[in-house]
């Protein structure tokens, strides 16, 4: 089938302001991924079209974009899921709330800065076991934080969050998800420090439970639920 692409373009070296570029592709298969089609536009029609990508199957978190107004990984969206007619149109633009570098590429630094503020690393509660072996953890304790270990830092959640759009100071759901992964790990001993960080001005209380983030997550992490659990832990002073 034929598909029209409407892509938000901006190259700061030549453009004064962003514009919509239009491209038509023939021979599109219903099983084609949007990433492949963006590649076809870039490779066959206009090499200046710029995007990030790597794994092409939804696990590296490189290619978060807005497809028809919804945050998605371009490599995880198949044409057939968009309900297009022959000649139908797909709109692709950069995710919102992070500065655009060029075309679909945004500046991820503010996003990673927020991530780094929540101590996203293991702070062991106990010394290394004397027998030189692993720390033990029951399957139940391990299951407690399984969901939030899946995060690939793609920013789909944070850049769909109205509170983040309103203020870039807000650490955003992705950072909270990553804090959750450690706060609820029975082996970790820095729960209180993380809860203190997240109870600051820029922390969890900026979340108004608008739920945009959860459906945006390509890893199907229950983002809002994780945020709720962190809020509760702050109120309880511990996990």
């Amino acid at each position: 089938m034929k598909v029209k692409f409407r892509i938000r373009r901006f190259n700061p070296e030549v453009d004064k302001k962003p514009y919509w570029g239009e491209y038509t592709l023939d021979n599109v298969e219903p099983t084609d991924r949007i990433l492949e089609l963006l590649h076809r536009v870039k490779w066959e029609q206009d090499g200046t079209l710029t995007l990030r990508r790597s794994c092409a199957h939804g696990v590296c978190g490189s290619d978060a974009v807005r497809i028809n107004g919804v945050n998605k990984l371009a490599c995880k969206v198949l044409v057939k899921t968009l309900d297009l007619k022959d000649g139908g149109q797909v709109q692709v633009e950069p995710i919102l709330g992070l500065p655009v570098v060029k075309d679909l590429v945004v500046d991820f630094e503010p996003f990673f800065d927020h991530y780094r503020t929540v101590m996203p690393y293991f702070m062991p509660a106990t010394p290394r076991p004397g027998d030189g072996r692993e720390r033990r953890q029951s399957p139940e304790d391990r299951a407690r934080f399984d969901d939030t270990t899946k995060c690939i830092l793609c920013a789909c959640c944070t850049t769909s969050c109205p509170s983040f759009w309103a203020s870039g100071e807000y650490v955003g759901p992705a950072a909270i998800v990553n804090a959750h992964r450690f706060i609820f790990d029975s082996r970790d001993g820095a729960t209180q420090e993380r809860l203190n960080i997240l109870s600051e001005e820029s922390g969890v209380w900026r979340c108004r439970t608008i739920f945009n983030c959860t459906p945006a997550c390509p890893r199907e992490i229950e983002v809002t639920r994780a945020i709720g659990e962190v809020k509760l832990a702050i109120q309880r002073n511990g996990r």
Partner: peptide, 18 residues
């Protein structure tokens, strides 16, 4: 592998916690 676990890697666990 044990070093990775000690760095915090969340391996799946056996009933005895290993």
């Amino acid at each position: 592998v044990i070093e990775l676990e000690l760095m915090g890697l969340p391996f799946d666990r056996n009933p005895d916690g290993t």
